[in-house]
Amino acid sequence: MKRLLALFLLLLSLALNAESIASDPLVEARLKSLSQELRCLVCQNQTLADSTAPLAEDLRREIRELIAKGMTDEEITNYLVARYGDFVRYRPPFKSQTALLWLGPTVMLIIGFVVLWVTLRRRNKTLPNDYEVADEI
């Protein structure tokens, strides 16, 4: 009797484990990483992963199905871009229009440091040599 009860409890505890919304955790992990790079079109300032809007749920369902069909991440992104345009991508693709966006930061950083270096050297040459190292904190 005790054994039976234990078995019953064991079964019960098995049954009571919450399931993930996804049937397949691998699919879900890919959906997650993909949808974090995509913009929800209804609320527009959330990622597809975070949004609870109905369209976002439909699109997540669509992506799950596409993953199940064996499409690659790139193919799925292209599938959505074909329907909604580059607007859905939170990480804009690198092309001629976005060259400045992607290269700008590096260019600005290089220019910034070059200008600083040149300015410091030049003013150091111009000014009379007057310093002894100060003990200021």
Partner: peptide, 24 residues
């Protein structure tokens, strides 16, 4: 600033709509 305003720049120049978000 570049990331925030870039979609506006492109749109104003008639070069399409893009989104620049957290991944960028």
């Amino acid at each position: 600033m570049l990331g925030t305003l870039y979609p506006l720049f492109l749109d104003a120049l008639g070069m399409g709509k893009i989104s620049v978000g957290p991944p960028y």
